[in-house]
Amino acid sequence: MLWNSLLWILWQTSNTPEMADALRQSGKIYVVVAVILVIFAGIIFYLFRIENQLKKYERHSQHLN
């Protein structure tokens, strides 16, 4: 039974287009996800800094009008 399912997995992986199965199984794909998320968070943080600065200017220019 176990042998059969093992054979089936072997058959499946050898007959389908190659994918990064090892990268997923070892969990190293999470390293990539983490890196992209950190970079994205940095960009978003910066966008919010611009946003806040802009709000300050907007309040200021409303006082003038």
Binding site: T16, P17, E18, M19, A20, R24, I29, V32, V33, I36, L37, F40, I44
Partner: peptide, 24 residues
């Protein structure tokens, strides 16, 4: 932000069809 985080995580981790030439 939420949708783009989901896109990064789901886009890299969720299952996709196994196709020739395209692969990952």
């Amino acid at each position: 932000i939420f949708l783009l985080c989901y896109t990064v995580v789901g886009g890299l981790l969720f299952a996709v069809p196994r196709l020739n030439i395209l692969n990952e």
